[in-house]
Simulated scan of single mutants.
Amino acid sequence: MTKYWIGVASLNHVALGVAGGFSQLCHGKEAPLKKMKPGDWLVYYSPKQTLNTDEKCQSFTAIGRVKGSEIYPFAMSETFVPYRKDIDFFPDAKQVPLHTISQLEAWQKYRSSLRYGHFEIDKDFFLVLAERMGLPMKYES
């Protein structure tokens, strides 16, 4: 059964993942990646433009489908080896500002979950996000 997820990351980190075709969640932890199975969907929410600044983004910034089940370590430096999982991102996704959906009842039940960095959403809310991000219907099956 397909599941739908939101991952939280700064826009610059999301852009690296989209360009590289991977997801890296919760500062590189393996546990959230284990929850996502092939065929599941992931939508990224970016509260900030970059991790260590206060410049806000507050938008849904990427959408993609989990490609495989492999979770692998990736050495970004000698001291930082986060885990990743491959994602087939929709390359033409439009950013959707949070304020355009913040009044939706569906969002109200999820907004407090942002602090967890990764959480499951229901299909109906995913479809709202997918439609607003411009995901073609062929991707939804």
Rank of each mutant, 00 (worst) to 15 (best):
Y44V: 07
Y4T: 00
F22M: 11
I63M: 06
T53E: 11
W107G: 01
S69K: 15
M137N: 12
E120I: 00
S113C: 11
P97I: 04
G134N: 03
C57L: 02
S112T: 14
M133D: 02
P73H: 15
M137F: 13
P32H: 03
V8C: 06
R132H: 06
E140I: 05
A31I: 10
I63T: 06
E55L: 08
F119C: 08
S23K: 04
Y4Q: 02
V14Q: 05
V128Q: 04
E105G: 04
K35I: 01
L104G: 03
T79G: 15
M1V: 12
S59R: 09
A15K: 14
G68Y: 03
A75Y: 08
G28K: 04
K67I: 13
A31Y: 03
L104C: 02
V8W: 02
Q58G: 00
P97G: 10
C26E: 08
K123D: 00
G39Y: 10
I71L: 13
S23D: 07
T79R: 13
Q24L: 05
V14T: 06
G64R: 05
L135Y: 04
F80R: 11
L33D: 03
K29D: 14
P38T: 08
Y116P: 02
K3A: 12
F74Q: 15
G21K: 12
D86E: 14
V81N: 14
M1L: 14
V66I: 15
G7R: 14
M137K: 12
Q95P: 01
D122A: 02
E120M: 05
R111Q: 15
E30N: 12
M36L: 13
G64Y: 08
K109D: 07
Q24H: 09
A75R: 15
G28R: 04
E70M: 13
K138R: 04
H13Q: 04
I87F: 07
K85P: 09
D122G: 04
L129M: 12
A19W: 00
Y45A: 00
G117I: 01
H118I: 05
Y72H: 13
G134C: 04
I87Q: 06
C26V: 15
L114E: 08
E131N: 05
Y110S: 01
A75H: 14
V8A: 09
F74P: 04
G7Y: 10
Y44N: 06
A75T: 12
Y72T: 15
R65M: 14
P32L: 01
R132N: 11
V96T: 01
G7M: 12
F90W: 08
D86N: 15
P82L: 10
L129W: 01
S23R: 03
Q58C: 03
D40C: 11
K34E: 15
F22I: 15
Q95N: 13
F22H: 13
S102F: 06
Q24N: 11
T100Y: 03
I87C: 07
H13E: 01
V81E: 09
G39E: 14
L51V: 09
F74D: 15
F119N: 06
I71P: 09
Q24C: 12
Q95K: 15
F90Q: 01
M76V: 08
S112V: 11
Q49K: 14
K48Q: 12
L16F: 08
F126L: 05
G68M: 09
